[in-house]
Design a protein around this nucleic acid. Structure first.
Length: 871
RNA sequence: GCCCCAGUGGCGGAACCGGUAGACGCGCCAGACUCAAAAUCUGGUUUCCGCAAGGGAGUGGGGGUUCGAGUCCCUCCUGGGGCACCA
């Protein structure tokens, strides 16, 4: 049955392959430093090769690609690379589950995903591709590690670490979420063990201060980082300790506490130390009761609910602390469950009147509660706390020499006095901890050191780098295969030559991603980065990725920029000048009766609203429709990119993920939305064909005069161009899409008129339309560009400039209000003065009607904007 | 608990610096083409009163500033995100 088609439909899947091949053959996306143009580095957070790309992933790359293509057309020398964040747990999990080597699994995935990315038509420089699991990459990472080690930026320390019992590895603080491992979700245990750290706290102040300069970062991310670094100014002060139980050692003679509220020092009524405080541990050796108390504290988990619920509890050590400023005042010293060892000194003085935790503690143990900060307007003699601590501003009272001061004045006065006495010191504290990078896993970058009984920790000589991962490993038992490998870890000490062992910890995969952006600038260099290339390309001008990396990856990369600068690999402060955090593609989830997640393609949805039902295609059984969530492999609510592209083409996918939702917000995947995008692709193609046929001659002489319709069309085209340009520049892709739609409709209605006089303007409009949508739908763009008679590539065309003369109209339409309510509009010459506008406005019939004969009090005329008649 | 962000038609969302709210898309309704369907095209679509002309209401609720508020201020509600015994 032959169906007559009115016109050849645009066959996207076929044509797209063609254009991808042309781009590749001509190598137009290769970037070099040898260019007269200003550089521009566009980067999307590189993917973990987990298997296949779904439509959810594609949004990030599409946005980056639109921007890269746009900037290229705008005359920049654009670097737009791609690579693979290839080390990590899933590869080992696959090895355990499927008996496939992590390297094999990883490289297979990379091959598949690379093909998928290519089918999206991304303008990537593939010559710079690398995978972080390649020795050619981690070789240089080991070199960086050694340089950091030499500089004291890396060190090995014994510390309490977060141990993930499921993944059998240490986690960084940043990777513990609500007391659970960020990957496994298992409750994290606290363990004491030697691990490797990067000294990120060295840059705490700088990392915080420099946030101010990150003007093209989302405010939200800057705030999150600042909070994470968590700076607080306070005072370290020392109390003398006394008591029968006091251990003999000199270090226990004094108790050092940290406070940010030195102004409340006279309100102190007890001291408390953490159950993990060295003094507490020492005392516990001779005090079984205390030991039991400490053990009880340790048993309490770290999950948020537990923390919120637990009661403030203390154990009186029998020791007393003498007040450094007030002779005769002696404070009992408790071990208290709410004092954290990880912050400050692990010891506090408690001021119940002005700290809620101390208040609860004092109430429970009957300790004095002495208000020393009195809110402005209250009388110190009669002021009573309202059943809770007061932490607001006020004047100091009951505090000797501090009386009458403000909180800030008192803080300064106490600090000064204690510093003069040598019993205190102003101190800035940070919440930020050093970054623990040791992972007890196989599939990561080996830490290039050797442990020697005689020499201690010995760096592997550079000439012996890279320290390669052994390939013959098994995953049949839990734990780190490197530890049980028969030969790999046994080496000679590089220093003394005697038998020694290799470090079997590997680096956190966040190390790999902390400098890949720099490696892209010189991916084949024989050192971590070529300083000339890096200095040319860095910083990344526009970085695009998910907001879930707001802290971890982005903070670590900022640290690396500093550490690599300190070790002379870079000259850079901030790695990412502009950051954009894009929203996800979300899709509803489906679950079969047996509780299995189902792919959208396995489900048929019928009906609408309340009647909406889903059934499993294969069995016809009903399916439960679950909440709309981020597309993820685990819940199977994904649409495979290959399937999508084979059906609709890459441009439809690209257009869809850019449409409707603002880029920073999530977009809901829907078949109807996709249909809309698909329809638009065809509509543009039909329109361009029609115009191309009609105004066949390209480069026909521009008429000296245009009729009113042609002039209006040209004005609309140039206005659309100006707006689309601005909105792409500002990453407001959804708005740019809307404006392209709008102009397409305008162009289409003009084309419908059989008016020869429009031909030149139609052709101009068609060309501009094609250029405007080129960054978003590059294949369709090329196809149309060719159809319009060009044998050049659209991807190599400069971005068109709107004609400024066509952006302003001779007449303008402004609203006319009466008492702020719109009554009519007025079209008037652009140059009309206020008096003319006022006069014209007052003559309008709806205005006269609304005035109801009342006298006009005032007329506000904002030229080119509005007229408001006030009665 | 604290700190951010958001709340606009049936839906996704637009609206520069306070100046015609609802661009654009989806959906829906009507029409054209068709034997019919699909595709495509045209028109309509915040809501209420009205045949219409026209008018009233309207950007989560309440209050305020202003000639004028989706936009600024106060307050409350709802949703999302971040942090959380940080001394």
């Amino acid at each position: 049955m032959a169906t007559e088609r009115p016109k050849e439909r645009y066959n996207a899947p076929v044509r797209e392959k063609h254009w991808q091949q042309v781009w590749e053959e001509r190598g137009i996306f290769k970037a070099t430093e040898a260019s007269e143009r200003p550089k521009y580095y566009v980067l999307e957070m590189f993917p973990y090769p987990s298997g296949r790309i779904h439509v959810g992933h594609s949004r990030n790359y599409t946005m980056g690609d639109v921007y890269a293509r746009f900037k290229r057309a705008k005359g920049f020398n654009v670097l737009h690379p791609m690579g693979w964040d290839a080390f990590g747990m899933p590869a080992e999990n696959a090895a355990m589950e499927r008996k496939v080597h992590p390297a094999r699994w990883t490289y297979d995935n990379i091959a598949a995903m690379k093909a998928q990315l290519k089918s999206m038509g991304l303008s990537l420089d593939w010559s710079r591709e690398f995978a972080t699991c390649d020795p050619a990459y981690y070789h240089h990472q080991q070199k960086l590690f050694l340089d950091f080690l030499a500089k004291g930026l890396a060190y090995r320390g014994v510390g309490k670490v977060n141990w993930d019992p499921v993944d059998q590895t240490v986690l960084a603080n940043e990777q513990v979420i609500d007391g659970r491992g960020w990957r496994s979700g298992a409750p994290v245990e606290s363990r004491e063990m030697p691990v490797w750290y990067f000294r990120i706290t060295k840059y705490a102040e700088d990392l915080l201060k420099a946030i101010d300069g990150l003007e093209r970062w989302p405010e939200k991310v800057r705030l999150m980082q600042a909070k994470w670094i968590g700076r607080s100014e306070g005072l370290l002060m020392r109390y003398q300790l006394e008591g029968k139980a006091l251990p003999r050692a000199k270090k226990y003679k004094e108790l050092e506490v940290f406070t940010t509220r030195a102004d409340t020092i006279f309100g102190g009524s007890f001291c408390a130390i953490s159950p993990a405080h060295p003094l507490a541990l020492e005392l516990a050796k001779k005090n079984a009761e205390l030991a039991a108390f400490i053990e009880e504290c340790n048993r309490i988990g770290t999950s948020e609910e537990e923390l919120a619920r637990i009661e403030k509890k203390g154990f009186d050590t029998g020791l007393v602390a003498t007040h450094p400023l007030i002779p005769g005042v002696r404070l009992n010293v408790y071990v208290a469950n709410f004092v954290l060892m990880g912050y400050g000194t692990g010891a506090i003085f408690g001021c119940p009147a002005h700290d809620q935790r101390d208040f609860e503690f004092a109430t429970k143990y009957g300790l004095p509660i002495i208000p020393v900060v009195i809110p402005e307007g209250s009388d110190p003699r009669t002021f009573r706390l309202a059943g809770e601590a007061y932490d607001g501003p006020g004047r100091i009272a009951n505090s000797g020499f501090l009386d009458g001061m403000t909180v800030e004045e008192a803080k300064a006065a106490v600090a000064e006095r204690l510093e003069a006495l040598g019993k205190g010191k102003r101190k800035v504290m940070y919440r930020l901890r050093d970054w623990g990078i040791s992972r007890q896993r196989y599939w990561g970058c080996p830490i290039p050191v050797v442990h020697c009984e005689g020499c201690g920790i010995v760096p592997v000589p550079e000439s012996e780098l890279p320290v390669r991962l052994p390939e013959d490993v098994t995953f049949d038992v839990p734990g780190n295969p490197l530890v049980r490998h028969p030969t790999w870890k046994h080496v000679k000490c590089p220093s003394c030559g005697r038998p020694a062992t290799r470090e079997t910890d590997t680096m956190d995969t966040f190390v790999d991603s902390s400098w890949y952006f720099a490696r892209f600038t010189s991916p084949h260099a024989d050192r971590p980065v070529d300083l000339t290339a890096a200095s040319y390309w860095l910083p990344v001008d526009q970085y695009i990725g998910g907001v879930e990396h707001a802290i971890l990856h982005l903070l670590y990369s900022r640290f690396f920029a500093r550490a690599m600068t300190a070790t002379k690999h870079l000259k850079l402060k901030e790695p990412f000048a502009g950051l954009f955090t894009q929203g996800m593609v979300v899709h509803e989830t489906y679950r079969s009766q047996s509780g299995q997640w189902l792919l959208p393609s396995e489900v048929r949805v019928e009906g609408e609203g309340e009647q909406r039902r889903a059934v499993e295609v294969a069995t016809g059984r009903p399916v439960e429709i679950g909440p709309v969530e981020k597309m993820s492999k685990s819940k199977k609510n994904v649409v495979d990119l290959d399937d999508f592209i084979n059906e609709y083409g890459a441009d439809t996918a690209r257009w869809f993920v850019l449409s409707d939702s603002p880029p920073e917000r999530d977009v809901i995947y829907s078949d109807v939305g996709v249909q809309g995008a698909r329809r638009f692709v065809q509509r543009v193609w039909r329109l361009i064909e029609e115009i191309a046929e009609r105004a066949a001659e390209r480069g026909a002489a521009k008429p000296t005069r245009f009729g009113p319709e042609a002039a209006a069309l040209r004005s609309a085209a140039h206005k659309a161009l100006a707006k689309v340009t601005q909105n792409i520049e500002g990453l407001r892709f959804n708005v740019a899409v809307a404006q392209i739609y709008e102009f397409t409709t305008t162009l289409q209605s003009a084309a419908a008129k059989q008016d020869e006089g429009l031909n030149w303007a139609l052709r101009e409009g068609a060309e501009l339309l094609v250029q405007m949508l080129g960054p978003m739908m590059p294949h369709l763009g090329e196809e149309c560009w060719a159809r319009l008679g060009y044998n050049t590539l659209l991807a190599e065309q400069p971005w068109p400039e709107p004609d400024p003369g066509l952006l302003v109209d001779d007449t303008i339409t402004i609203a006319v209000q009466v008492n702020g309510k719109r009554r009519d509009e007025l079209t008037i010459a652009k140059g009309a003065n206020e008096a003319e506008i006022e006069a014209a406005a007052l003559k309008l019939a709806p205005v006269v009607r609304a005035l109801e004969g009342r006298p006009v009090k005032k007329v506000i005329v904002v030229p080119q904007r509005i007229v408001n008649v006030v009665v």
